[in-house]
Structures are given as C-alpha cells and as structure tokens.
Design a binder for these strands. Structure first.
Lengths: 176, 176
DNA sequence: CATATATGTCAGTCTTATTGACATATCTCA
DNA sequence: TGAGATATGTCAATAAGACTGACATATATG
C-alpha cells in the first residue's frame, strides 16, 4: 500500500497488460492523475468565464495576450496552434467587449499588435489567480525541495522540439 | 441550477480572488507549463486515434472501461462527468467497432457492464503506451527521490471533494 | 511593378458537448 | 401484485471550438 509508486509492479493476480509490455508496467496512476488534475485545473476559470459568456478559447487568447503584450496575430496562432479562422471569432469577441485592444504595427502596418486593456488585464489576473491558488495549495503539500522537480517534470512533458521556444516565451517576463 | 440527472456537483465554493496578488506573484510558469504539458500529453494518442477515426472522447471511454472492467454506464458517466447523450454516440461507435463489449448485468438486468474486447484492450494499451513513454522519459530527467512528490502534486491538484474517490478508482485493480 | 506577407472573412463541416423530452426494461417495496 | 424508482436508450435541437478551402485586402519588399 505504498501510495506513491506506479502500481501493478508485482500484481500477480491480474494479467491486465499483456501486450502493454514495452519495458515495464505502464504508469497508469500518473496518466490518470494528469487527466483529472488538468480537468480540475481548468474548471475554476471555466466557471468565471461562463459568467461572462466566454469559453476556454477566450481564456487562452486573453492569457497569452496579457502575458505577451504586443503579440501579433501570427505569433498568437503559433502559440495556440489553431487556425486564424478559429482565432478570429474569439478574438473579435474579446475586442468587441474591450478586453483586448488591437493596434496597427508601426514598423509594419500589416501587423496587428494585441494588448490587454485594463479590464482585460484584470480578468486575466483573476483567472490566473484561481489557477495559481490551486497550484499554491497543491505545492503546499509537497516538500519545497521537490518544487523544482515538479517544474522540471512538466517541462519534460513538452515536446522536445518545442520545449526551448515554450520556455523562452514563458520566462520572458510579464508586461514588457 | 445547473446539474442534470447525470452530472455530479460542480459548484465549488467561490474563491473570491479579486485582482492579481494574494501573497506573492502568480505562478505563471507552472500555469503555462501545465497547459503546454497537457496539450502534448494528449497529442500522442490523438494521432493514433485519428487513424482510426476516433477522437479523444473515444480514448477516455476506452481507457476507463479497459481499466475498470465491468464498469456500468452510470459509473462511467460519473467518472467522465458528461451526459449520457454525449456518451452514447461514442460508446455506440466503440461497441460497433468491437473495441468494447456490453454485457447485461446478472444481478441487475437493467445495468450494462462494459468490457474492453481483446482488440479494445490492445488499443487501450497502445494509447497508454505512448502516454506512458512520455511520462517515463519525463521522469527520467527528475531525481527518483522526487517522483513521489510529482504524484502528490498532481493528486493535490484534484478537487478535494473528488480526490478520495478518484484515488480509490485509480488504485483499485480492475473490477472484474 | 510584381510578388510575398499579414491579416480578414465567407462558407461548410466535424467532434464533443449541452438541454429537454420521452421510451423501455427492470427492480423494489408496500 | 402493482406503483414507483432506477438504469439505460433515443430523438431533436443547439453551442463551442476546432477544421479545410477559397478568396479579399493592405502593405511590404525586391
């Protein structure tokens, strides 16, 4: 009943993974924990967004615009990995409700630079707040010494080819 | 107010979180890492599923049925937190393609007990395999001593009210 | 000027989810 | 036994979020 290890290592009675053997038991616990953890992680913002008639797509757009002021359409599409048609509706709604502001590029007037407005930033911060609160309480039950390992683990879960780009974007610091 | 006959409670207490802070900067890195990590985590199965004309919904159903043989419709709905109408199409397709088998309950003939077929189990194992591989390589870059902390962290990210139920479901062997 | 680039938009489709309303079989209990 | 309650199935309409394809416009660049 050691609560932490991946289960089934010596599970004699159940032969539940015949063709699964690619070199050991599958980490079912971590697979399912990740699923449930992520679901609850996004549920907090979902409730707030629903009050405003927004969905997760709005959250993602607002979040990355807030974190990367001046982001262009193309950059945002690259981050979100969606098509411009998908982005369009959501972005139009966020602009229409004045949570995001569009400024024509100065150097290149074809570009659109996106910025969160004051209310956009407030909403983004509120959404990040509830998610941050969940993270904070989760970290609370874990030795501080292990916190870097958690970050390292999540980082290593990202596709290697994208990892560098994602990290540089994440760590680029807010507002500026 | 919002629940149907099928859904469980969703209303967590509102954690009023006005603007930014509460006791420090928001953990933006972990917020974004979780987002990107989860996206890539599901991308591997997505590719396999696409070949078969299936989507994520099929994956989830097949996964939990495979892991919990004999699962009833009601139990599955409780795990997935979707409506029976949503489940229906997906489940019908999985049954129609013989990845899942339905058996009428013996004790209670109203119930339907779901089982993965041989091919269903093979597919489930293949999907869990690619996800497990990603997890394994991610764990590789983290000191083994910190592995329990990662599991503890993910567990703590789950809603407290659900945590116990989720854990018992995850750790219990196949129902048989 | 010709072409490439950045963005916008129209139209249609798909998957996954929703709510609402019923239908049917079966179990339970008074 | 008969009246509900329960477990599941199904029809219909709708929505969010994504997609492809095609085309339009403005601007930059060589």
């Amino acid at each position: 009943m050691e609560s932490t290890m991946v289960r089934g290592k010596v599970g004699a009675q159940v032969d539940n993974e015949p063709e699964a053997r690619a070199g050991g038991a599958l980490p079912y616990e971590l697979i399912e924990l990740f699923f449930f953890a992520y679901r609850d992680f996004v549920s907090d913002p979902d409730r707030i967004l629903a009050e405003l008639g927004f969905g997760r797509a709005h959250h993602r757009v607002l979040h990355f615009v807030d974190r990367n002021p001046g982001l262009t359409i193309a950059e945002l599409l690259d981050i979100l990995k969606i098509t411009k048609q998908s982005l369009n509706r959501v972005l139009k709604e966020l602009v229409g409700t004045a949570f995001i502001e569009v400024r024509t590029g100065l150097a290149d007037r074809r570009q659109r630079h996106l910025h969160a407005t004051a209310s956009g930033h407030a909403l983004a911060a509120r959404l990040a707040g509830v998610q941050g609160e969940r993270i904070r309480q989760a970290l609370h039950g874990v030795p501080a010494a292990a916190h870097p390992a958690i970050e390292a683990y999540l980082t290593a879960m990202i596709d290697p080819q994208e990892r560098k780009q994602v990290l540089s974007r994440i760590r680029k610091g807010p507002v500026g």
